[in-house]
Amino acid sequence: MKAAVIVFPGSNRDRDMLMALERAAGKPPLAVWHGDADFEPVDLIVVPGGFSYGDYLRAGAMAVHSPIMREVAKRAQAGVPVLGVCNGFQILTEAGLLPGALLRNARLKFVCRDIHMKVETAQSLFTAGYESGQVVRVPVAHHDGNYFADDETLDRLEGEGRVAFRYCTAEGEFDDTANPNGSIRHIAGIYNETKTVLGLMPHPENATDPQLGGTDVAALFDGLVAALH
């Protein structure tokens, strides 16, 4: 699998993502600078976490208008798989590649800790290594992770099986104490119509190495490598 990680001024999880991808794929991915308008064909594009352009105006709003994001949008529409993590998720919603928006956390605090999330469906490129309903532990680190969309959009997402992950307790129960940011219907991640674009607030790249406290999400990267090799 050949992957590319997009790097913006203010990205800060790009190196973690490069390492997680290299561990799974056995070869280093491409790091693509935001000012580049083009890059070689790849099997997977990752928009990593951080604070691109200082989160000016709204998180992700400025990154959408960088030369590289026009190319990413074009390739996403052509069917190239795209993974957006944290700020990457915010950027994909701002770009209109995923529905909804990420608001300020409901309790207004920056949240940085491990959470649990439920894999809603194993029927996707990204979650083939899981059982539907499996609970995984993964870190979050964000200030604007409160997912919001109108009821009609939410019903459509649920009806089409496009909710990827939901925040839950270690036992898999949905309750407000297990929801770190107030996200509507406990949503932690969603897919686009073709399930080739995934955006999520938690950091899968930081749950792939036992030295960082857990490897629950290594299967996401291993599954991508198996599907896209």
Binding site: L103, R104, N105, A106, R107, L108, N146, F148, D150, G182
Partner: peptide, 11 residues
């Protein structure tokens, strides 16, 4: 309207 405004609430 209908979008939660946690900052407004805190103020």
């Amino acid at each position: 309207t209908g979008v939660l405004d946690p900052q407004g609430k805190a103020v």
